[in-house]
């Protein structure tokens, strides 16, 4: 072989097509924004049903999660995500999709070793590091800030 790893790395970069950035961003913007609008509409709906502010927010999140699960089950969420990219990944519906899709996928390996064990295989890190970050904040709030005053 008359080629070094570095030379090859450059060749690969040139030969590989880039992502169509503008189109991808447009899709992400429209779909992601659309899901947020849906969240806002649901919030208004639950407020009208006399839920208090925080409960209305929670109910609209739960409804989005439910809708995401429904459309994931039909195979539509994945299809939309092929185009929408981060537009379907970043909203809470993407989190729900990350829980529902492995649950469905590993149903063939049983309810315990499949669904139960694999359900959080993708979303797990989000929970782990989200909670850990909040714990760090908690430590700061409880131990450090009071002593600074």
């Amino acid at each position: 072989m008359k080629i070094t790893r570095n030379e090859y790395s450059d060749m690969v970069k040139k030969a590989s097509p880039n992502s169509p950035l503008a189109i991808n961003c447009l899709w992400a913007f429209v779909v992601g924004g659309g899901i947020c609008v849906l969240g806002e509409l649901l919030y208004g709906f639950y407020r009208n049903m006399n839920f208090i502010n925080s409960d209305a927010r929670l109910m609209s999140s739960i409804t989005l999660v439910g809708l995401s699960a429904f459309f994931t089950g039909l195979g539509w969420y994945g299809r939309l995500a092929k185009k929408a990219g981060a537009g379907t990944l970043v909203p809470i519906t993407g989190f729900a999709n990350a829980v529902v899709s492995p649950a469905m996928e590993f149903r063939s390996e049983g309810l315990i070793t499949g669904v139960g064990a694999k359900m959080f295989i993708i979303a797990g890190p989000v929970i782990v590091y989200g909670v850990l970050a909040s714990v760090v904040y908690g430590v700061v709030l409880y131990f450090i800030l009071p002593n600074m005053r």
């Binding site: 995500a81 990944l89 492995p102 993708i122």
Partner: peptide, 17 residues
């Protein structure tokens, strides 16, 4: 897909390569 990447119904965009 399920062995090397992600569950089939997981929403992900395929890279152009």
């Amino acid at each position: 897909e399920r062995q090397f990447r992600t569950p089939l119904d997981y929403g992900g965009k395929r890279t152009p390569t």
